[in-house]
Simulated assay, not measured.
Amino acid sequence: MDGNGRWASARGLPRAMGHRQGVEAVRALVRGSADLGVTHLTLFGFSTENWRRSSEEVSTLFDLLKQFVDADLDDLARNGVRVRILGSRQGLSRDILDIIDRAEARTASNSRFNLNVAFNYGGRDEIVRTAKALLAEAQAGALQGEIDEKAFAARLDTSGLPDPDMIIRTSGEMRISNFLLWQGAYSELVFMDVLWPDFSVDHMKEAIAIYQARNRRFGGRP
């Protein structure tokens, strides 16, 4: 979800307003994606690299997470949405950890739609954390079986979730910026020249149409 700051700057607004409008785009997309038949949606909300931003902007992003959960959790739970927060818990304050725990616990039994929010997440960090977890299990004598792709995937933040069929990058940037590096090995990449606050259900339909026109071979023949 890229382009919040540029969206605000183009309108002479503070960056915080771009992030707030970005949350509105999230709300519309969650509703619209479920109606389109999408069952899993993973949004990159805050990366491990975003700590480099100003303390004011980081505080704004954290406040928006709080407000989103407070305002939308009841509605998400009623509509069968399961919320998972992907990423490291290290460095997060107690109030943010409590919000994460509340959102996941409240929606744990839902299955109609899966909303995953990558928060304090980085693909490389996730892979390192997973390798450390496997090493700790091996050293403790608790590792069952050999270390293979299945064992590794089972210890990722996305354990139990399917790999993404498609990864969409907004704002015209042509990179995936440390997002789902393991899981996205065979994802179809779609780059769209639209700032995130302007991203709509129609843009999602356009991305799905692009995806449907692709021929996915996974290294084999068609």
Rank of each mutant, 00 (worst) to 15 (best):
A34D: 10
A34W: 02
L36T: 05
L36D: 03
G37E: 08
G37S: 03
T39C: 13
T39F: 04
T39Q: 13
H40K: 05
H40C: 06
L41S: 08
L41W: 02
L43S: 04
F44Q: 00
G45D: 01
G45I: 01
S47K: 09
T48R: 13
T48E: 11
E49S: 07
E49M: 04
N50S: 13
W51D: 07
W51T: 01
W51F: 11
W51Q: 05
R52L: 07
R53W: 08
R53M: 09
S55T: 12
E56M: 09
E56T: 07
E56F: 14
S59R: 14
S59W: 12
T60C: 15
T60V: 15
T60Y: 03
L61R: 04
F62N: 05
D63M: 13
L64W: 08
L64Q: 11
L65P: 12
K66W: 12
Q67I: 03
F68E: 00
F68G: 06
V69M: 10
V69R: 01
D70E: 15
D70K: 09
D72I: 04
L73F: 04
L73V: 06
D74S: 12
D74C: 06
D74I: 08
D75M: 05
D75H: 10
L76A: 02
A77C: 11
R78P: 02
R78N: 11
R78Y: 00
R78V: 04
R78A: 14
R78E: 14
N79L: 09
N79W: 01
N79H: 14
G80E: 03
V81P: 00
V81N: 00
R82A: 07
V83W: 01
R84K: 14
I85D: 02
L86K: 00
G87H: 05
R89Q: 08
R89H: 10
R89V: 03
L92F: 14
S93D: 15
S93F: 03
R94A: 14
R94V: 15
D95S: 15
D95F: 00
I96F: 10
I96P: 04
L97I: 10
L97F: 01
D98R: 14
I99H: 06
I99N: 00
I99A: 09
I100K: 01
I100P: 03
D101L: 06
D101H: 13
A103E: 08
A103L: 07
E104W: 02
E104I: 04
A105Q: 15
R106Q: 13
T107Y: 11
T107E: 11
T107M: 11
A108I: 10
A108W: 06
A108Y: 02
A108M: 09
